[in-house]
Simulated assay, not measured.
Amino acid sequence: MSGLLIDYNWTKILKRKEVLRQVFAGFDPNIVAKMEEKEIMEIASNKELLLAESRVKCIVDNAKCLLKV
């Protein structure tokens, strides 16, 4: 969630916490790292989150990096 600070303040992030938890599979990096283009586009088009496609791709890439560590 801290990666969203570029776009939002903590108040806005915390208001979206449950929606973020839902779309990013409870923040499970094993699941997020496997997200494909269709899922990324669905999340990016979610009007409740207002996340750019590039931001969603970055979150998925971060999950992949986390798994490498």
Rank of each mutant, 00 (worst) to 15 (best):
M1F: 07
S2G: 08
S2H: 05
S2R: 05
S2L: 06
S2N: 09
G3M: 11
L4H: 03
L4V: 03
L4R: 05
L5E: 03
L5P: 02
I6P: 03
I6F: 07
D7K: 12
Y8D: 01
N9Y: 04
N9T: 03
W10L: 07
W10N: 04
K12G: 04
K12C: 02
K12L: 08
I13E: 00
I13F: 02
I13L: 02
I13S: 01
L14N: 07
L14E: 06
L14K: 10
K15Q: 12
R16W: 04
R16Y: 12
R16Q: 15
K17F: 08
K17H: 09
E18Y: 04
E18W: 05
E18R: 08
E18Q: 10
V19H: 14
V19S: 09
V19G: 04
R21H: 10
Q22N: 13
Q22V: 09
F24G: 00
A25F: 04
A25V: 05
A25W: 01
A25M: 03
G26T: 00
F27E: 06
D28F: 01
D28P: 00
P29C: 07
N30K: 13
N30H: 14
V32P: 00
V32H: 00
A33E: 00
K34N: 11
K34C: 11
M35E: 02
E36N: 12
E36S: 11
E36M: 12
E37C: 05
K38N: 14
E39A: 10
E39F: 04
E39Q: 10
E39V: 11
I40F: 03
I40E: 02
M41V: 15
M41R: 15
M41H: 15
E42M: 13
A44H: 04
A44I: 11
A44N: 13
S45D: 15
S45H: 15
N46M: 08
K47D: 08
K47C: 07
E48M: 15
E48Y: 14
L49C: 07
L50K: 09
L51R: 01
A52R: 15
A52D: 15
A52G: 13
A52L: 15
E53T: 14
E53C: 12
S54M: 13
I59E: 00
V60R: 14
D61F: 12
D61C: 09
D61W: 14
D61E: 12
N62K: 10
A63K: 03
A63C: 12
K64Q: 14
L66V: 11
L66D: 07
L66H: 13
L67Y: 08
K68N: 11
V69E: 09
V69W: 10
